[in-house]
């Protein structure tokens, strides 16, 4: 009898693969490795300036490998005004927008803005991670997700890994309590730092995340963001929850 949580039906997504874009061989190696490990969709962060050339190459490699590509931009604004300016410029061009929060004001603005898909806190220092209950409340209303990069858990050691694990334990608890979707991404810039989706779920044991939530964080949650944004970027989108269903001759006249 097939199990309810059969891995075969799950579509695993790594929304933060970080290959060196200037090196096509490395890009190819990373995408092939991700495909080999069972990912059906990969998100690659492209630079905000002239992303089209890189996107073309990545799309071609992904098509050859049988993996779906999601275009993503990581914004690292210095202040909320810069964040808003970048969002206005990029939102209609890119499928997923992540904001790396290096200051509290940027974190708050990113959490309440519906155009931001992912909140990311790259620092390992607890003082520079601003994901608390207030931030989680804003993020939950604006449908922003909290992203956890798994690569630092692999390459950090000793005290710094202890600090990171302690922060992640608190943050994941806050996110789960407030209904903020979690996303587990590799954040890997090297093929040897990539792991299978289920292995990442196993690694979340280190910060007390339960297996079911961990598996959702590597499959359903990122997939939901991608589908939502693709619908918004389609020509049939008019306004939130308003879509064009028929056009032209298909429309019945009164």
């Amino acid at each position: 009898m097939p199990k309810a949580g059969n891995a075969a039906v799950k579509k695993f997504v790594d929304l933060h693969l970080c290959p060196r874009l200037e090196n096509p061989a490395h890009l190819k190696q990373m995408i092939e490795k991700a495909a080999e490990l069972g990912y059906k969709t990969v998100g690659i962060p492209f630079p905000a300036q002239q992303p089209q050339e890189n996107i073309k190459l990545a799309k071609k490699i992904c098509n050859d490998t049988g993996v779906e590509l999601v275009t993503r931009i990581d914004l690292s604004p210095n202040n909320p005004a810069e964040l808003l300016k970048n969002l206005r410029k990029l939102r209609r061009k890119i499928e997923v927008i992540a904001v790396k929060c290096y200051s509290k004001t940027v974190a708050r603005q990113a959490a309440k803005d519906r155009r931001v898909d992912i909140l990311s806190f790259p620092s390992t220092s607890p003082r520079k991670r601003f994901f608390n209950s207030a931030e989680a409340n804003l993020a939950s209303k604006a449908l922003a997700a909290f992203e956890i990069d798994m690569a630092p858990l692999l390459y950090l050691q000793g005290f710094r890994r202890c600090l990171l694990l302690s922060c992640l334990r608190k943050e994941t608890m806050t996110a789960t309590k407030r209904g903020v979707p979690l996303i587990l991404s590799s954040g890997a810039s090297d093929a040897l730092l990539l792991r299978k989706p289920k292995d990442y779920a196993a690694l979340t044991y280190l910060f007390d995340l339960d297996a079911k939530t961990a598996e959702q964080a590597v499959s359903q949650n990122p997939q939901a963001i991608i589908e939502r944004n693709r619908r918004k970027l389609s020509p049939d989108y008019i306004a939130p929850d308003v879509y064009l269903v028929r056009r032209g001759k298909d429309c019945p006249s009164e």
Binding site: L37, L153, L154, Y155, A191, L192, L193, L194, R195, K196, K198, D199, Y200, A202, L203, Y205, L206
Partner: peptide, 21 residues
């Protein structure tokens, strides 16, 4: 606990490696 330890292994001897379950 063992699965987390296996997955978190990044080096065998002095060489960089990855272990997949």
């Amino acid at each position: 606990l063992v699965k987390a330890s296996i997955v978190a292994t990044t080096k065998i001897g002095e060489e960089k490696t990855a272990i997949h379950i």
